[in-house]
């Protein structure tokens, strides 16, 4: 699975008919099994890139393809910042919802139960989303994206709304499950430490629409203890400096 964006541009038009070019001639690639994070100041187009890759937005120019085939809706697993679990559905019914939209996707309830067991949510199989904590809900939302059966997962600040302790727990959980599943992940975050801890590669989006790629050469498997390492601190410092030196 390789995601390729080639010379992609996108202009947002607001209700007052004002145009704002959010993405300009962007080219990037995410390779099979890679964990890539998009970072950058607000307004640099991180969420727009994710929406273009999901097919929710259509680029004005350029090409977006997965394995050489133009993307379309339903080609990726998407997890937004808010868990967006449907409040009237049980957890198990929430995580298998994609199967109700796609004939090619068959998920038995037994399989779904196995997954819930795997992520420690089996006791909450029939619970409603509001009966779960923030971290549990995010895990359920991640499962929903995973059970779309797609190799590419797009995670849009999934832990942005969690408290610091839950966030650390969730990062550790995501690291372990990603290492086990070998999925390709495109991740958005504002948390530089999080980007360094999780990613193989970080793509920094600059306000002038240029991008910069930074390889994270930290050994895997990684664990949250790595957050206290000098290597990660140094990398984070380097990123901070790059962002601080930017002019809007």
């Amino acid at each position: 699975m390789t995601l390729v964006l080639k010379n992609v541009s996108y202009t947002f038009t607001n209700k007052g008919n004002q145009h704002n070019k959010v993405i300009s001639e962007l080219s990037m690639q995410v390779n099979r099994g890679e964990f890539v994070s998009l970072i950058g100041k607000s307004g640099t187009g991180k969420s727009t890139i994710l929406k273009l890759v999901t097919g929710l937005l259509k680029q004005d120019e350029g090409e977006i393809s997965i394995n050489g085939k133009s993307i379309s809706l339903g080609d990726v697993g998407y997890m937004p910042q808010r868990d967006l679990l449907l409040p009237w559905r049980s957890i198990i019914d929430n995580i298998i919802i994609a199967a109700e939209f796609r004939k090619d996707l068959q998920i038995t309830r037994e399989e779904a139960r196995n997954w819930l067991n795997h992520v420690g949510l089996i006791e909450y199989e029939n619970a409603l989303p509001k009966q779960l904590s923030g971290g549990m809900r995010q895990r359920a939302a991640f499962l929903r994206a995973l059970l779309t059966g797609k190799d590419l997962l797009l995670l849009d600040e999934p832990f942005g709304a969690l408290d610091a302790f839950t966030k650390r727990e969730m990062q550790a959980w995501l690291l372990s499950i990603w290492q086990e599943l070998n999925k390709t992940v495109l991740f958005i975050t504002h948390d530089l430490e999080e980007a360094c801890l999780l990613s193989d590669r970080i793509i920094l989006l600059h306000p002038d629409k240029k991008i910069e790629e930074i390889n994270v050469d930290l050994p895997r498997p990684r664990f949250p203890d790595l957050l206290h390492s000098t290597e990660l601190a140094g990398l984070r410092h380097e990123l901070e400096k790059k962002i601080a030196n930017e002019t809007d």
Binding site: L73, Y78, P80, W88, I97
Partner: peptide
């Protein structure tokens, strides 16, 4: 019907009829 919910379901391949029955009606 919250736009974010609609976008999420559409990203999974839901049609307008799907979003109507699974999201708008409830």
């Amino acid at each position: 019907g919250d736009k974010e919910y609609i976008e999420l379901l559409r990203s999974m391949g839901a049609t307008r009829w799907h979003t109507f029955t699974k999201l708008n009606i409830p």
